[in-house]
Design a protein around this nucleic acid. Structure first.
Length: 694
RNA sequence: GCCACCGUAGCUCAGUGGUAGAGCACACCCUUGGUAAGGGUGAGGUCGAGGGUUCAAUCCCCUUCGGUGGCUCCA
């Protein structure tokens, strides 16, 4: 006897056991037909799962009640499609061993071990998809059966896949006493896989799918273990949904900062200069410079002081801070002086020997700085401080260098040399909470001005089982508590992640996504009780005794490179006026109005506006098109009529119409105001909104 | 760093074992045009670099540099 509560609150009683499929049929044939799976007490299950006790039940169908694509349905479809793909690949590539094939946000993948040289290539995708289509067309049921752990293990041993045996062992360790298998059809007669499930009722319910890409992975994500081939695919309930998804991917690619950066000539990365070393072109430098001015103004208001420090420093500095030799793999190798190098060479010192002697401190050298904090610390420590002076806030757009792995470098988001909008706050312990809040306010101001609301907050805590952190645990506890409290006060949901702390302290990170869904850390605020100890920092308290300051490291943009990269994608290259490399372009209708056009240009430039003129030998239409491809915010088009009335005909990027005539004075005032107010007020707003047909 | 794929004109890309092509951009000429591509002519390439196979390599093989997608890493 089971009483089943449905999502609308109604209940149904069943005298014996039943299944979600049965319940769906009892509710209606339409639902029964649409059903892909079920949620029993909130847990996703097969439609054939037996129900023998009271529970709540909802039937999973491709579209949820609000008409949106149902996430659970996608999960079922994709997980099932992973099986279909695995079967297809095993058919085409005999000897392939399966490892793990879960659904993911954008589809699914299956990790596989191919016999030597037998891995598929992207050329094989069509054949794999054709084979999958056959399996889908056969509409074979997903049939679940269970074996006691011992029998299941014996079966897997016989089949001989160490990967599946390992999966099973881990399931067993996690407390499973039975293993479940899913056959695509009849157990024994058809393909099957050790799998927890659940799945759609039959292969035919996978509406549309595509094999998308090929990558490598490591078994259990451990690079010392087997290297596997990961085949990615995606699946949807219907073909239009798949097509829409593929279209979105194509659209996203157009926003890619690497594509736009080239198109708009914002930056250049040159193989002759080096991987991950960004060259900022004049246009891109404008964007960066405007951002730096913006933050500098905000910093001045918050009582920061600007400093400058060199790009290198002695190894001893970084030995003291703990950066060297602890993190030497992620730094450019040390720079050694000529004399020392000659002496070592004369001694016949080997490379390995040199590395050891550098690590031990027997040989000294310089390091391209991996972080700015040691330099700032030395500035703080260069003069005595009273409790009255605190906090001391030192800010610098400081360029740092890190040896990122070659395979990880790309575009502006992961580079080897980058400039942080860095600052270090030396504060009294009673000031920590307030100063952290001040840092968060800055981050909010920046994100708010730029309209970036799609970020998440992560509080990175130490992993107490790891030895990569410095400092004593009482200080860590205090710092972690300060971060948690500050994050809470933001009023934004945040996650706490163990093992995400910096080596010297916990942190609050701001994370955004790029166009292809990858997450990037931008701004960060870190509380540090440890470096002040390592550098023996102090200030004189009201009691005339030496006290230890606390440090706060913070960089609201993270790095200028990454931030601009994300910003390019955020605006799809169409920067607001204050950031735009080119703000206004003047287009004379013909030679007859060029004189006036030059006058307009000169007036704009006199107001500090980045304006250009296109008096080229092209028709107006063509020149408008050229300007819109550069995403220039405003076009001032002038002909004889405009000249006579001393107005311009205005066009704004993104509005495919003439906004009308604007007196020259109002244009100058309006553009200046939009620029200085960073978009709080706009010229566009001065114009009467264009009608349906302007 | 690992695996797969890619590298042809400034850009986007086609192509072939017999030393290369398009569109856009560029230059010049014609056109003086009122809101998203007017017309013509022309210039432009050691086919990423090095080595090998071959009578002959941009194409096949190896190495290397760079890019892309993942994996791993990211103080």
């Amino acid at each position: 006897m089971a009483t089943i509560t449905l999502p609308d609150g109604s209940t149904r009683a069943y005298p014996t056991t039943t299944t979600p499929q049965q319940v769906a049929s009892d509710i209606g044939p339409g639902l029964a037909k649409a059903a892909l799976g079920a949620k029993i007490d909130g847990i996703l299950c097969d439609l054939s799962t037996e129900i023998s006790r009271d529970c709540s039940l909802s039937i999973v169908t491709p579209k949820s009640r609000d008409g949106r694509v149902d996430a659970d349905a996608l999960f079922l479809i994709r997980h099932s499609c992973a099986h279909v793909m695995a079967e297809a690949i095993q058919r085409l590539h005999p000897g392939t061993m399966l490892v793990y094939g879960p659904p993911i946000d954008t589809g699914f993948y299956y990790d596989m071990a191919f016999p030597d040289g037998r891995a598929p290539s992207t050329d094989d995708f069509a054949a794999i998809e054709a084979e999958m289509a056959k399996i889908v067309a056969e509409n074979r049921p997903f049939t679940r059966y269970e074996l006691p752990a011992q029998d299941g293990m014996a079966k897997l041993q016989k089949e001989g896949s160490k990967f599946k045996i390992d999966n099973a062992q881990r399931a067993q360790e996690a407390g499973s006493s039975v293993f479940s298998f899913y056959a695509t059809g009849t157990p024994g007669a058809h393909w099957e896989d050790l799998c927890r499930g659940p799945h759609v009722p039959a292969t035919g319910r996978i509406g549309a799918f595509k094999v998308t890409s090929l990558a490598s992975s490591y078994w259990k994500g451990d690079e010392s273990l087997d290297r596997l081939t990961r085949v990615y695919g995606t699946a949807f309930a219907t073909k239009p949904e798949l097509e829409e998804y593929l279209r979105q991917i194509e659209e996203a690619k157009k926003r890619d900062h690497r594509v736009l950066g080239k198109q708009l000539r914002l930056f250049h990365i040159d193989e002759m200069v080096g991987q991950g070393l960004v060259l900022w072109t004049p246009r891109g430098s404008v964007v960066r410079q405007e951002l730096q001015s913006f933050i500098s103004e905000a910093l001045k208001e918050q009582g920061y002081q600007q400093v400058f420090t060199p790009h290198i420093g002695k190894l001893d500095l970084y030995r003291t801070s703990g950066h060297f030799p602890f993190y030497r793999e992620s730094q450019y190798p040390p720079i050694i002086e000529h004399d020392a190098l000659a002496r070592l060479a004369a001694e016949g010192c080997s490379c390995a020997d040199l590395a050891n002697r550098l690590a031990s401190g027997e040989v000294d050298g310089y390091l391209l700085k991996p972080m700015n904090c040691p330099h700032h610390i030395r500035i703080f420590d260069s003069e005595p401080h009273s409790y009255r002076d605190m906090p001391v806030r030192l800010a610098e757009f400081g360029t740092v260098y890190r040896w990122e792995q070659s395979g990880e470098i790309g575009g502006l988001t992961r580079v080897r040399g980058f400039t942080q909008d860095d600052a270090h706050l030396f504060v009294r312990e009673d000031q920590v909470a307030e100063e952290v809040l001040g840092c968060l306010a800055l981050v909010k101001l920046i994100f708010g001005t730029l309209g970036m609301n799609d970020y998440r907050v992560r509080v990175g805590l130490r992993d107490t089982t790891s030895d990569k952190y410095v400092g004593d645990s009482a200080n860590w506890d205090k710092a972690e508590e300060a971060c948690r409290a500050a994050a809470k006060s933001l009023g934004v949901p945040f996650s706490q992640e163990v093992g995400e702390a910096a080596f010297y302290g916990p942190k609050i990170d701001f994370v955004v996504r790029d166009v292809i869904g990858r997450s990037w850390q931008l701004g960060t605020v870190q509380v540090d009780y440890n470096l002040p100890v390592r550098f023996n920092l102090s200030y004189t308290g009201a009691d005339n005794k030496a006290h230890r300051p606390v440090m706060i490291h913070r960089a609201p943009f993270g790095s200028m490179e990454r931030f601009v990269g994300v910003l390019i994608e955020h605006f799809a290259g169409a920067f607001p006026l204050w950031l735009a490399p080119e703000q206004v372009r003047v287009i004379p209708i013909s030679d007859k109005s060029e004189g006036y056009a030059q006058e307009v240009l000169a007036a704009l430039k006199a107001r500090g506006i980045r304006a250009t003129i296109d008096a080229g030998n092209e028709r107006v239409q063509a020149r408008i098109r050229d300007a819109s491809e550069l995403k220039i915010p405003y076009l001032a088009i002038v002909g004889p009529r405009d000249r006579d009335a001393r107005v311009v005909s205005l066009r704004a990027f993104g509005i495919d119409a003439n906004l009308g005539e604007l007196p020259l004075d109002r244009l100058l005032d309006g553009v200046s105001d939009e620029y200085r107010s960073r978009g709080a007020r706009t010229v566009r707003a001065l114009m009467s909104p264009p009608g349906p047909r302007a």
